[in-house]
Design a protein around this nucleic acid. Structure first.
Lengths: 140, 140
DNA sequence: ATTCTATATTAGAATTATTCTAAGATAGAG
DNA sequence: CTCTATCTTAGAATAATTCTAATATAGAAT
């Protein structure tokens, strides 16, 4: 097995990313990279860790999520002011965001295409393209 | 003059939107809808109002920006966690966001096209399509 | 014009998400 | 085994925003 790296051992993952494999990073990596695509909030991951008996502070969860994002293991998705999600799916794709439930869902890359990108202003590069489709309940 | 409604009298604007034209709403509307496209933050608009000698509280600025957004006079743009901009350009368009300077800039509608939109999940409609191109300084 | 009532506005407290701080712990090189 | 750079920590601090309950005001009804 290998494919999209379905379980590349948390230890190796950290090693390859140049992050010291500490107890809490290992534990959080295991929770995050379980092979499924996850959209996590810091507070929520902290809860999961505690529930698993892992002693880790919320500050460390924030630090770790940001470090993972820096080395490209995660992608941060901003949907509302004061609400950051971290996406374990780092492939090229976009998101549905349901304003009623607060749920974030992946849109597969092949279902949304950007036809034309504008040139960035001089001296800048486009670092990231975020597309969010805000959903609302259909009522009649 | 009329075109895109370049100065449709703040009073009428509020009236047509079903908002009671109070002193502070009128003043804020005048600051916001001056004919140019603006990207405003609440704190900043509050500062401008005070500088103009308009007595208004920050809470009212927040209330007003949200009310204007609800009736379609403004559009809220989220770029980073804990950072909301209100855009006076409510036509269909997208944004560049420079992470270094915090500057938000319009991308004209004709410079970015979405080729294909996915179907929303059952029972939902796509309420808004947000595209943000994150910019970073080009260095070498 | 005056009165009245629903809606606005206010200051300040409260909340939420996040970052900072400075002290103590630990991975792993030597 | 020791040492040091890097982590982790609890709790304080910050930032943006929302809430609260009291006061003010627009505009309809008198």
């Amino acid at each position: 097995m290998a494919a999209t790296r379905p379980y590349a051992n948390a230890y190796d993952l950290l090693r390859e990313s140049g992050l010291r494999p500490t107890r809490q990073r290992l534990a959080l990596a295991k929770l995050l990279f379980d092979g499924t695509d996850r959209h996590v909030r810091a507070e929520q991951l902290h809860g999961e860790a505690l529930a698993d008996g892992i002693r880790v502070s919320l500050a460390t969860v924030y630090n770790t999520l940001h470090q993972f994002t820096e080395v490209g293991l995660l992608r941060e998705v901003i949907v509302e002011s004061g609400r950051a999600y971290f996406d374990t799916n780092i492939s090229d794709h976009h998101h549905f965001f349901c304003e009623n439930s607060g749920e974030l869902r992946d849109i597969p890359a092949d279902q949304l295409a950007i036809a034309r990108l504008p040139d960035p202003p001089a001296g800048k590069t486009v670092k990231r393209v975020d597309v969010i489709l805000h959903l609302a309940d259909l009522e009649d």
